[in-house]
């Protein structure tokens, strides 16, 4: 039983990072404009497919259940918030999203709840454990969209797909552009500055950090720092405190709770950055998911890493 407890705590830690798997990009050949005009346009010869390989049917979904905090944020950002009738327990942004009924933790959704809400579109995170639910929903005639929105590069594509299914591809394009523009601005501003290493503290027991595969590692790079564990390809990894001390990061990045742990736990005094107080408290809600607030996240991180930077 103890191993189960440990397992679930690791699980919670992992779920904060939302892993980046290798995405299989299928041909996205339908023009944005054609999709924007909705159903009136003759269907293109090449279908757009989601990350479970299912065809994405253009339309104007009216009862949407979004089972991924990132897609919920995006739906609200592109003005489809009023059509969202279900969300996950973890969705917290924007505030109005909290008024939408809670459909559970998002992964392995409770199909009775989902079907009972009579949705015409269910958006899922494209992980293996969501596949049975997606298959079941489709067999019951409910449209699904499964996206593995794990990296900053995925953001534009996810928004585009959301645009196709909500019938407002132009808004989606505008939102994607504005995030990209902010990120570009931050990247340009930090380009000439010294890149110091940062250790991103995710979880304590076991000690988990981010690897190259995480969008948070990309975020660090844009904000003008380099991830201490960029040599690890996976989104997250178990590491040892000893190795962190040896690698001697200039910064330690952590969430509010993590920051408290770092200051309280005497072992962490072995890390010079912690001793010197070079701890960056990141807003977990902001940096925790690759969504429309990535620009905001990059700005706030860059300001902490490079005080006085012009943005």
């Amino acid at each position: 039983m103890a191993s189960f407890n440990r397992g679930t705590s690791i699980l919670r830690a992992f779920s904060r990072i939302l892993p980046a798997g290798k995405l299989v990009f299928c041909c996205v050949a339908v023009s944005i404009l054609a999709a924007a005009c909705g159903r009136d346009v003759a269907p293109s010869s090449v279908a757009v497919r989601d990350d479970f390989g299912n065809e994405v049917v253009p339309g104007v979904a009216r009862r949407i259940i979004s089972l991924n905090p990132a897609t919920t944020e995006m739906l609200f950002a592109i003005g489809a918030g009023s059509r969202v009738i279900g969300r996950t327990t973890w969705d917290s942004y924007p505030d109005s999203a909290r008024l939408v009924p809670d459909m559970g933790p998002g992964l392995r959704p409770n199909l009775e709840v989902v079907i009972g809400a009579k949705p015409d579109l269910v958006i899922l995170y494209a992980s293996a454990d969501n596949r049975p639910a997606a298959d079941r929903l489709r067999s019951l005639g409910v449209a699904t969209l499964a996206v593995k929105n794990d990296s900053i590069g995925d953001l534009g594509r996810t928004l585009r797909l959301l645009g196709i299914v909500t019938g407002d591809s132009v808004r989606a394009l505008v939102v994607a552009d504005s995030v990209r523009a902010t990120l570009d601005r931050v990247r340009a501003a930090t380009a000439g500055r010294e890149r110091r290493t940062a250790f991103w503290y995710i979880w304590d027991s076991p000690l988990i950090t981010i690897g190259r595969g995480s969008f948070m590692s990309e975020l660090l790079a844009i904000a003008g720092a380099s991830n201490l564990y960029d040599d690890i390809a996976t989104p997250s990894a178990n590491v040892t405190l000893e190795d962190v001390v040896t690698r001697n990061p200039h910064w330690v990045v952590a969430g509010p709770e993590g920051t408290r742990n770092l200051r309280r736990d005497a072992r962490w005094r072995a890390v010079p950055a912690v001793r010197a107080g070079r701890i960056i408290m990141a807003d977990t809600a902001l940096v925790g998911k690759p969504s429309v607030r990535l620009g905001e996240a990059a700005v706030s991180l860059a300001r902490r890493l490079h005080p006085g930077i012009e943005l």
Binding site: F4, G7, T8, I10, L11, F14, S15, I17, P19, G21, L107, R108, N110, L111, S127, A128, D129, P132, R136, T234, P235, S236, N238
Partner: peptide, 24 residues
């Protein structure tokens, strides 16, 4: 599981805890 992806870990754990939710 020590070096597995979160998908594997989550799937394995869920499975090890047993469920008939996916019944068909």
């Amino acid at each position: 599981l020590a070096n597995s992806t979160s998908d594997t870990l989550r799937g394995s754990l869920w499975w090890m805890m047993g469920s008939v939710a996916d019944a068909s």
